[in-house]
Design a protein around this nucleic acid. Structure first.
Length: 499
DNA sequence: CCCCCCCC
């Protein structure tokens, strides 16, 4: 769409604007904009002052019509939607001035009108827009309201933009990320000390093929976190010279007790931004950080203190409620007893690299090949992948668990299990026998899996796959409190009164 | 008027 959509010489609502001048930018670009338009700060944008009247020293009324002067710090791609209420297209912007930030969204005709002309990092005047409350569930800019473009909305470029800041960050140290709730948004800054491969997979929900890449960020708290990049950002990421990465509005994810940050459509990533925090961080990393040991908060702990809150269920309740039938897995907590642990195929030989757990191929010459690392090693490490039957007072359930959880339940390391398997079959068997009839508090992940039994008749077999996300010993005082809470909820009896 | 942001 043409640049002319950005009107700079039109006067709206009688605002005082100099006439069009001849010394504008080169041909094809908008004429020299008016840099003297009255504006309100972004922090003051609300539905009730989108037209402000002012009494000037000249004794006349001026309108500033809620005009703002703002830098575009995020411009999303055009997104189309189709739902029960209709279909359409939209894009959104993050707008920043010295007072704050706000999100603006353009729908349908406004997309055609403004999408091409508005450029990242440039400053514009915006006026005659609609204002509505921001939905805090989805908002990741710090403002109570958001702007919607309408048919009267005017946008004009502003070249006198030195007073308008760039992206505003509110960084938190990486070691504080886990204190925030999963699915909330945070700003983080870190040195990219590691990059993973680009991984392609098919999304369960949309069947779309997706590309992702995890990179590892570290900061002065000597803590590292995994940042997930998507699509072209994943493919084009360049980790040359361990750049500083600043992320605004990254989404916190929880997996297996660890936390990671993921880019979303509304996140902003800057590589080596020219901001004080970045220079300080790079200085720290080059002098100290590069050799420091770090705690990785994205590691799956299996036993971490995260997330036993909420959903307590018995196995019968889980089955009755058809848990795991949705698009996403369901999590529940329960107290259960190990009834049986399968000793067959409990261990596998994995790549010896610290961050790689890929199964290795025995080359037959005392060398083991990892396809992921594309390397051969003279050694390997044992890892556990256990299948076991758990029982509670209502029913039982087969579950699987991995390394850390399996070690916690067996009470021995994967290495000990693997060694015993080859040297002492009695000891090996005893590891599994000893685990039976132990009770724990489990956090379990349930997801229904479907098997197409036959291609010529529609006959889908379904099976509930349950994985242990976390395990911990039973703290009876704490568990009894949980039971008491349940009883209170089920009862009208006031337990706080003496009987 | 979107608000899904994906996977282990």
């Amino acid at each position: 769409m043409p640049q002319q959509q950005l009107v700079s010489n039109k006067v709206m609502y009688g605002a005082k604007v100099p006439s069009k001048t001849s010394n504008g930018p080169s041909k094809g670009l908008p004429p020299t904009p008016d840099n003297d338009m009255k504006c309100q700060p972004i922090s003051a944008v609300c539905p009730y002052n989108s037209a402000l009247y002012k009494f000037t020293i000249h004794g006349i009324f001026e309108f500033d019509s809620g005009r703002i002067k703002a830098r575009v710090t995020l411009k999303t791609p055009i997104k189309t939607w189709s739902n029960a209420r209709g279909e359409g297209k939209l894009f959104s912007l993050n707008l920043v001035d010295e007072s704050g930030e706000i999100r603006a969204t353009a729908f349908n005709e406004s997309v055609d009108k403004f999408y091409e002309s508005l450029e990242m990092n440039k400053v514009y005047y915006f006026s005659n827009y609609s204002v509505k409350p921001a939905n805090k569930n989805f908002s990741n800019v710090n403002h109570d309201y958001e702007i919607t473009f309408n048919s009267s909305t005017q946008v004009s470029p502003c070249l006198n933009d030195s007073d308008v800041p760039t992206t505003q960050f509110n960084f938190i140290p990486i070691n504080k990320i886990a204190e925030n709730d999963p699915t909330s948004y945070v700003d983080v800054i870190g040195v990219c000390k590691n990059v993973g491969d680009v991984v392609t997979f098919t999304a369960r929900t949309t069947n779309k093929e997706l590309k992702k890449r995890d990179i590892t960020l570290v900061d002065q708290s000597n803590t590292s976190v995994s940042l997930t990049l998507w699509g072209s950002q994943a493919e084009e990421f360049d980790d040359t010279n361990q750049p500083v990465i600043a992320v605004k509005a990254g989404r916190i994810n929880e997996f297996g007790g660890g936390r990671s940050v993921s880019m979303t459509q509304a996140s902003i990533m800057l590589v080596n931004p020219d901001i004080p925090e970045a220079h300080k961080l790079k200085g720290w990393f080059d002098n100290h950080g590069v050799t420091q040991e770090t705690v990785n908060i994205s590691a799956r702990t299996g036993t971490g203190g995260v997330g036993f809150d909420g959903n307590w269920m018995s196995f019968k309740e889980v089955h009755d409620a058809q848990l795991g039938g949705g698009d996403k897995p369901d999590y529940f907590n329960c107290k259960a007893t190990v009834l049986l642990v399968r000793s067959e195929n409990a261990t596998y030989r994995a790549c010896p690299q610290v961050d790689c757990n890929k199964k290795v191929v025995d080359m037959g010459n005392d060398m083991y090949r990892c396809e992921k690392c594309q390397a051969e090693y003279p050694n390997f490490k044992y890892r556990l992948l256990l299948s076991m039957c758990l029982g509670d007072w209502t029913s039982n359930q087969w579950v699987t668990c991995f390394q850390e959880v399996a070690e916690e339940i067996l009470g021995v390391t994967a290495q000990e299990v693997g060694t015993a398997e080859n040297t002492d079959q009695n000891m090996y068997n005893s590891f599994f026998k000893n685990a039976t009839f132990k009770s724990f508090i489990f956090k379990l992940r349930a997801k229904m899996e479907f098997y197409n039994v036959s291609s010529w008749c529609v006959c889908d077999e379904r099976r509930l796959k349950v994985t242990i996300a976390q395990v911990k010993p039973i703290n009876f005082k704490e568990y009894n409190n949980t039971l008491m809470d349940n009883i209170k909820k089920l009862s009208d009896i006031d337990f706080t009164k003496e009987v």
